[in-house]
């Protein structure tokens, strides 16, 4: 696994020492035999660092899908959008997060809030997919 954190933010991944106990005198810690690498959230949440971007949610149009104002979105551009995925799209030059739906009428962007009607993707609408939302990070306290 490459240095994911570095690839994403330019910052080095936090390095955790492999041996925790200092051996100065006396007996080494019995726990040293069980040392493992500390968990790195980047490894779990980011499959492809070069294609992964973080975006900040503004507004409540996706509340029903568990995406709230101020949440952090992890967006992977290397995934090709498919129906039912939550995607970031560009509508009229703005980023918007919606669920991609397909019906007999064609593709549309569906909000998860009663106040926001779906946006249908037709030949005359200027809509492009920007990336696929893989994770939502929501603060609970």
């Amino acid at each position: 696994m490459p240095d994911v954190c570095k690839a994403i933010s330019g910052a080095p991944a936090v390095r955790c020492p492999l041996l925790m106990a200092r051996v100065e005198a006396g007996f080494p810690s019995p726990a040293d035999d069980y040392v493992e690498r500390a968990l790195d959230l980047n490894e779990e949440l980011i499959a492809r660092p070069a294609a992964t971007f973080f975006l900040r949610v503004s507004g409540c149009s996706m509340e029903g899908a568990g995406i709230h104002d101020g949440d952090l979105l992890i967006v992977d551009r290397s995934i090709s959008p498919a129906p039912n995925m939550v995607i970031v799209a560009v509508v009229d030059g703005e980023f918007t997060v919606k669920r991609l739906r397909q019906s007999s009428a064609g593709f549309m962007l569906e909000a998860a809030h009663p106040n926001y009607p779906p946006i249908s993707i037709g030949p005359d609408t200027e809509i492009r997919a920007w990336g696929v939302v893989t994770w939502v990070i929501h603060r609970t306290c």
């Binding site: 933010s9 971007f53 973080f54 975006l55 900040r56 949610v57 503004s58 149009s61 980023f95």
Partner: peptide, 13 residues
Amino acid sequence: RYTTRWSELPKVI
């Protein structure tokens, strides 16, 4: 600095 600062991430509605 969209990709290197938490406070400057792109906004999505």
